[in-house]
Amino acid sequence: MDAPLGKLLPFYLVVDVSFSMLGKKLDAANQMMPAVVDALAQAPILSDKVRFGLIDFADEARVRLPLCDPLDENVTLPSLSLRGATSYAAAFRLLRTEIEQNVRQLKADGFAVHRPAVFFLSDGAPTDPEEDWRAAFSDLTSYDKQAGEGFSMYPNVVPCGVDDAEPAALRSLIHPSDGIKQMQMYLMEKGEDAAKAIGMIAEILISSVLASGESMAKGGSGLMLPAKEDLPAGIHAYAADDEDFV
């Protein structure tokens, strides 16, 4: 890095758009990015650093909002629509490609880049073979610093589940799953309204983004998740080794 143009904190929101998201759930998912934009507009320190990208997935995954400054006046937020099954593998593969390309490009443009954060929202179990999505997730998150093997730009992953999301599968997506920087999973309480739960997950996402800004002022360089007691009612937080979600 010769002389950095700025320091950036990339966030990716990854949203399930399989047919089961039909109706109010999709409407709620479509309100997530506008809510993020409204919050960032009130947060000058953070909005100078945050970059947001939106990926949706069903049978395949698509970049719906390439990583950008969401307050940039040239940015138009996409409208999500439904299209098929639930391939986690497609989402993870596209994420890896995107993160690698985005970080390389930002660095080539002269930016210093903090570790990316991924919020992964799903309302159902993966429909692709387990070994496929597990392998794709491993490609996205495995990194051996000593050996220099794996994906050095691996993201922090925060899985979020509503409705029929499978807790055990989602839980295995918490990354890092241990250590001082361990992430969490957010699950809708059984019987809660799923569209409302997506709105709460948007709130959690926003408070994480805001807390990350304050954490950077306190010397942290990564994603800060809200404390369990600060969660909206209807949503529960779990660590990778929690067993009590059924």
């Binding site: 890095m1 210093a112 950077m216 010397g219 360089s221």
Partner: peptide
Amino acid sequence: PVKNADVDIHSSA
């Protein structure tokens, strides 16, 4: 040595 001169991910440790 210049800080973070040759890293993929910026660190503040």
